[in-house]
Design a protein around this nucleic acid. Sequence first.
DNA 1: TAAAAGATTGACGCTTACGTAAACGTAATA
DNA 2: TATTACGTTTACGTAAGCGTCAATCTTTTA
Lengths: 134, 134
Amino acid sequence: MTKEVEYKTYTISELSKAFDVTPRALRLYEESGILSPKREGSKRVYFERDKVRLRLLLRGKRLGYSLAEIKELFDIYESNSGEEGQLLLLLETMEVKRKQLETKKIDVEIALQEIEKVTNTARKTLKEISATKN
Amino acid sequence: MTKEVEYKTYTISELSKAFDVTPRALRLYEESGILSPKREGSKRVYFERDKVRLRLLLRGKRLGYSLAEIKELFDIYESNSGEEGQLLLLLETMEVKRKQLETKKIDVEIALQEIEKVTNTARKTLKEISATKN
DNA sequence: TAAAAGATTGACGCTTACGTAAACGTAATA
DNA sequence: TATTACGTTTACGTAAGCGTCAATCTTTTA
């Protein structure tokens, strides 16, 4: 008794709409070795795995990582043989990334504080203006 | 009695070392209209104001903003006449940026969580390995 | 005073991350 | 069956953000 599992698949345009990226970008991500859709003839067929990776990829981009860096991360993560050396490499890499992200987090928070300051000052001035008007 | 105020100034190489950017970059930032050092003959002289702006610029970059966007922000902030329309524009702009930053904050936090998961899994596996060894 | 250290202005080069168009194939639809 | 929609590869174009000379000038410093 074979267990039939339905895998949802996506065409390039479906995936591109779903994530608001162009097909061109998806092809580039493939060329960069990050996505690897199956083929049906010459047409790309994307599976859940690709969707997951694309989601991570885009988050990575928003965080400022280059495609090369993102691929590197995927590679390290996947090449993980469960072997000790590999695991240690993984841990080191993650530690580096973690520190970068903590720094970024601080950058974001400082920026938010600055925005708040500017905003408060502007609001005060506005209030004074409307008070003067009356 | 004239009040003499000492302003600390910087040469391009001093500032470049202080912020770990190349002189070339500083010249580009000037060309982009973000920095505007005074001149002593043909030589650039940077004041505190430039230092402050550079610090903000670099944070902006780390947050993923382009030089053009950064300049735009400075422009809006400075063109602020205290006039009502300008203040409202400033508030709107800041609100947009604030939302972007909140999104980025979430991205960072999700990424940190993912790193934690991967890290924990790797650590567990490592423990199992060292247990087997004995 | 000669040489080294820093500065300046071009100007061309390079990488990343796509955009865009061309030329072509296949499949669904009017 | 003709057209429209969607897909493919190939390839050139582009914008941003510098890197890297080259040629020249000025100022220290040995």
